[in-house]
Every structure is written in structure tokens, then in C-alpha cells.
Design a protein around this nucleic acid. Structure first.
Lengths: 222, 222
DNA sequence: TAGATTGTTAATCGATTAACAATC
DNA sequence: TAGATTGTTAATCGATTAACAATC
């Protein structure tokens, strides 16, 4: 595995490569060339080879790539051959939604606890997990060696929760709060802005409508 | 408003500009220069001006941008000054999670119905909405003039659901299925791959660990 | 008017694509 | 060996940043 800094664009494509390789494996396909992969996944063959060669030469000239072998390499690159212990902070609507969803994600990602400030919710069960007191979060993360904190609290509390999680020693934060948070350099951060995603969809819907109207005048084909 | 094709990078930044402008408005800030905005949001002042000028000249030389004015412009660009009628397809874990979450998104996005194939779930209530029979989806979308279909079914059914929604006339699809789907050019598509997001977080966690080790040898500062 | 800051053109940087020598 | 396809270098393309004239 090489050492140069990998661009975000490449990292974001890796899970997608993996998904297609899993599908191919299911279908019993054993080898694939970058050209075949290209027509399947929609990236250029050149880009596929370029991307993979950031991490090593996984192919074989004249043959292509082993589907299973490449999938295993990507698993290792992404760290999906490891176990991750996670906590969810916030058991409101968002927290319930994410707890529910996260249970459906396959692989070594396990929810060890759900935490909440609101005393009325503490003690309740959520998806088979007891909701615990947010005050105990630091102890829990330390003792249970939690790797990932999932932030599902409101905008106002998100940074404070992140600070606490980082202090307690998590290695990554997955945040669904509608705000941009900051973490120390040694903690990985992935923020999902679902409402931003819906807003860009709205943009594209309106954009299509507009350019559609325009095209009817100038350019019927395409 | 100008006409050239706007790049995805720009479109994806628009909701973020909007979030910061909303915060500023809340705080009672009336004007902001691209330089001040830059140190707040973390994009270069140049990029901010460049981005905004894709859509029009919203600022004033020697003064800056009106916070409220700019936010209203961005609302209009994104189409957030309109109402959107949405349906959710799939009332399983994922569908329940997304229904729950989507209820918390502010603005003109309204869920008109939840649809499900599994007869056992049909008739149940979900977040105050009755779960309806998937067989009736086309009629419902046509009659209720639904704008957006939210796909929360499994990988295997996602494309079929998308086809049906497009046939029935939705203008946009927001998909959470773990698969890449295709839609006609006149339909906007936004796919959220939550598990991909978690996988890139895993990558970054492991990457930090590795480069951390490396740095301890060569380069303690930074 | 002078100062500030935009809008826009030009320069730079990085990512994607093309080309081809290496090699299975 | 000949054919196929990779790994990698070079060329192109697009997006970001810098510079500055326009103008409030």
C-alpha cells in the first residue's frame, strides 16, 4: 500500500466499487477488466485503474482483476475487516431514526449504547437497547472502548457532544446534526446533512423544469 | 439569473451557504462581506463570490451582501420558496426511520402518504400517516400531484419503484436504497448512501491511525 | 472623493482522461 | 509467442484561487 495523500474524490468512490464487486461476487463472476467494470459502474476504465493504483497493483496484465480478491483488498483499505463499537447520542426523532437505520447496516458496526439528556426517555428501550443517561457518556466510552460516536442531537448541543466524545477517546464521529462541528485532527469526522441533500434535489427539479422549457425552443434532440 | 450549466460542486455548497446565512439572520447580522463570510464558513472569499455570481450579482461593491437578501436569493435558487408533496415507499426499518426524520425537516416539504407492499403493515399508522397499499401508488401520485418520491425499499425493488414513480409523474426521487438507480432525464435524482458514508468514516479512522504512526517518526509538529 | 468590496478575468492547481510501455 | 490488459506517465479538462478593474 502506497503512502501519498488520497483525495476525497477517490475515497468516496471506494464504497461504490465495493458495492458493485459484492454484486458481481453474488452472481458468481470471478474476474473483471477495468473496461468491463467501467461499462457497469459508469466511471472510465482509466479512472478505475488510477484509483486502485493509489493503494497497490491489484490487477494482472492481460487478465484483469479478481472480483473476490479486489473486494477483499477494498474491504481492507476501508477497514471493513475490523469491528467498530458505536454509541448514539440523542434518542429523539433523529436518534430513533438513525438507531433504527444503523441496525440494518451489515458488517462490524455494532451499537453498544444510546444516550439521552431528557430524563423522561432514560431507561426506555429503543430497538432492544436501553437508553442511558448522557451524564455517563464519558465513563461508558472509556470503559467500553467505543470507537465511533453518532451524533443525533440538535444543532445547539452538537459541538458540546462532539467535544465530550473526543475527550472520552472516540476515533470517529458520524454526525447527523444540522450544523458543522469541529474535532481534533486525530479524530475522523463524517457529517451527513440530509436536509442539504433534499435541498439540492429541489434545486435540480427546478433546474430541469427551466432548462426543459428552454430546450423546447432551441434544441429538441439530445 | 444566468443560464450556463452549474457544476455539482457549486450546487452542493448552496445549502451550506443558506445554513450560515440563517444563523447570521438569527443573530441579527444584517450585512456580510465575502471576506467575513469566508472566515466563518471556511471557503475562500474568491470562491464565495465566484459561486454566487453563477446566479447573479447579489452584492454591492464597497458594502458586501445583505444577509437576508442573499438568503432569500438562495432560497429562490434552490426552490425553497415552493411547496413539495412527497410520498415514501417502504415502511420497513429504513422507511420508518426516514419518515420520522423527514418530518423534522423544515420548509415546504410535506409527506402526503406512505406506501408498502407487505399486507400486514398496510392500514397501520406511521407518524400519524396511514400506511397505504403499494398497488395504489400510481393513482395516488397522479391524483395528489406528488412531486417527490422517497425510496426506502430494499436494493432489489428500488429500480421497479423508481420506474413506477417516474411513470406516475414525480419530478424528483430521493433514494435511500443501497443501489444505484436510473431515471429519465426529466426526473431529478438524489441518492443518499448512508452505509457508504459510514464506510468512508471507517477509512478515515484507519488512515489517521496509520499516518499518526508514520508522523511520530518523521514529523512531530504540524 | 477615498475606501471598501464586489464582479470578472487570468493564473494555478488538482482531478480526470488518454496514451502507451510493461508484463502476464 | 501474440493478445490482452494492467500500471503509470503525459495531456486535458475543470474547478479553485488570485488579481484587479469596476463601482458603490
Amino acid at each position: 500500500m502506497k503512502n501519498a495523500k488520497i483525495s476525497n474524490a477517490v475515497i468516496n468512490r471506494l464504497p461504490r466499487y465495493r458495492r458493485y464487486l459484492l454484486e458481481l461476487q453474488k452472481k458468481g463472476v470471478e474476474k473483471i477488466s477495468s473496461k468491463e467494470f467501467s461499462s457497469l459502474i459508469g466511471y472510465t476504465a482509466s479512472q478505475i485503474r488510477q484509483d486502485l493504483n493509489n493503494f497497490g497493483g491489484f490487477g494482472q496484465q492481460g487478465y484483469g482483476y479478481s472480483v473476490e480478491g479486489l473486494r477483499e483488498e477494498i474491504d481492507a483499505i476501508l477497514g471493513l475487516d475490523k469491528e467498530y463499537r458505536m454509541v448514539i447520542i440523542g434518542a429523539g426523532n433523529l436518534g430513533q431514526a438513525i438507531t433504527k437505520y444503523t441496525q440494518t447496516i451489515k458488517g462490524g458496526f455494532k451499537i453498544s449504547g444510546v444516550f439521552e439528556k431528557n430524563k423522561e426517555l432514560i431507561g426506555n428501550m429503543l430497538e432492544g437497547i436501553e437508553i442511558m443517561d448522557y451524564e455517563d457518556i464519558v465513563d461508558f466510552v472509556e470503559k467500553e472502548k467505543i470507537d465511533i460516536g453518532i451524533i443525533c442531537v440538535n444543532r445547539e448541543s452538537a459541538q458540546e457532544v462532539a467535544d465530550k466524545l473526543c475527550f472520552a477517546g472516540v476515533k470517529g464521529i458520524w454526525s447527523f446534526a444540522r450544523v458543522d462541528i469541529e474535532v481534533p485532527k486525530h479524530v475522523a469526522l463524517e457529517v451527513v446533512h440530509l436536509s442539504d441533500s433534499l435541498h439540492t434535489l429541489a434545486y435540480r427539479m427546478n433546474d430541469i423544469k427551466k432548462s426543459g422549457t428552454r430546450k423546447n425552443k432551441e434544441d429538441k434532440k439530445e
